[in-house]
């Protein structure tokens, strides 16, 4: 019965139950079309959640990543337009690098001044967003100006299907990008020294440093990777919606943190897994998207997300207490 107590199994169970319930209210939920669009909505939140997961396992919290994502995205696209560059690989490398540099800033303040990550990331987030909107600009870059290569990349599908009425729909290839990143992070967390160090630091920083983990290196690794993932996700997002909006992602941190907590990660650190986080993201996106299908007024969305956060955190707090007792 050991598998039954794994939090991933519990989350998956609740997820299946919720899916059956939503399907009963409105069978349209189970259509392939809806499933594909659900998976598509998972990609951006999911990639960002991977970064937040990393930070949370180490015992920190990050609320600056939406600002980093939007800044990396907007600056990269501005740069592409300025240099008249039309490609895919280099911009993504640039966006991820920019995100990583912003992340370094977080790591520097968290490590050097031993300040609570929440307050540091509140500050860096406000700084980066303020700089972007105040100095770089507030105008949107629309589809007619967006680099074609990015749009084509964002359009690519893995599976394409034709509906009876002739319109086509498909599963976006970005899902594959998300899965590859998730698997990579899973391998790093499970099988590399630095990955184990992240868990060790989350469990007890003092103990981790006594057994020889380099806390400075780990802190920089965590926040840089989280920043890089955010920057990458930001550019991917603009490729998928064919628009670069410097006011995007406001308030997204709440959704992403909710998803990660829902996935079983503990804010005290030391706990959390990639699989759990992916399930948590799917659950959150599904609930938000399904409110419309279930004919609930969309004004209730925020309330539902809030209640989900409270319930999920209450359950994890209860679990942590039992584990410690």
């Amino acid at each position: 019965m050991a598998w039954f107590h794994k939090s991933e199994v519990v989350i998956a169970g609740i997820l299946v139950l919720a899916m059956i319930l939503i399907g009963l209210v409105n069978p349209a939920f189970w259509s392939l079309d809806n499933m594909f669009s659900l998976l598509r909505s998972n990609v951006i939140i999911g990639i960002m959640a991977l970064g937040v997961l990393l930070v949370m396992i180490s015992g920190g919290i990050d609320v600056s990543f939406p600002a980093f994502a939007v800044a990396a995205m907007y600056l990269t696209i501005k740069g592409m337009l300025y240099f008249n560059y039309d490609g895919v690989v280099l911009p993504f490398v640039a966006a991820a690098t920019m995100g990583a540099l912003f992340g370094c800033l977080n790591a520097f303040f968290v490590y050097k001044f031993r300040m609570i990550p929440l307050i540091v990331t509140l500050g860096t987030g406000s700084m980066v967003r303020g700089f972007l909107l105040g100095v770089v600009g507030t105008s949107m870059i629309n589809i007619n100006k967006m680099p074609d290569a990015l749009i084509d990349f964002g359009k690519s599908d893995i599976i394409s299907m034709v509906k009876p009425d002739g319109t086509t729909y498909g599963l976006t290839a970005m899902v594959a990008v998300y899965v590859v990143l998730a698997v990579a992070l899973h391998i790093v967390l499970r099988y590399t020294m630095i990955g184990r160090g992240v868990y060790a630091m989350g469990g007890d920083p003092e103990a981790a440093s006594r057994v020889g983990f380099n806390i400075r290196k780990i802190t920089f690794f965590i926040y840089c990777v989280a920043g890089a993932l955010a920057g990458f996700a930001g550019l991917l997002h603009s490729g998928m919606i064919w628009l670069a909006n410097p006011r995007d992602f406001v308030g997204l941190e709440l959704d992403v943190i909710a998803a990660v907590v829902l996935g079983g990660a503990s804010i005290f650190g030391g706990r959390g897994s990639v699989l759990g986080t992916m399930l948590g993201v799917f659950m959150l996106v599904m609930v938000k998207n399904s409110l419309i299908i279930m004919k609930i007024d969309t004004t209730w969305q925020r309330v539902v997300v809030g209640v989900i956060i409270v319930i999920a955190t209450a359950i994890t707090a209860w679990r942590d207490r039992r584990a410690n007792a």
């Binding site: 860096t124 987030g125 406000s126 100095v135």
Partner: peptide, 9 residues
């Protein structure tokens, strides 16, 4: 926005 930036700094 610039004031937000300054607050953050």
């Amino acid at each position: 926005h610039l004031i937000d930036f300054i607050w953050g700094v």
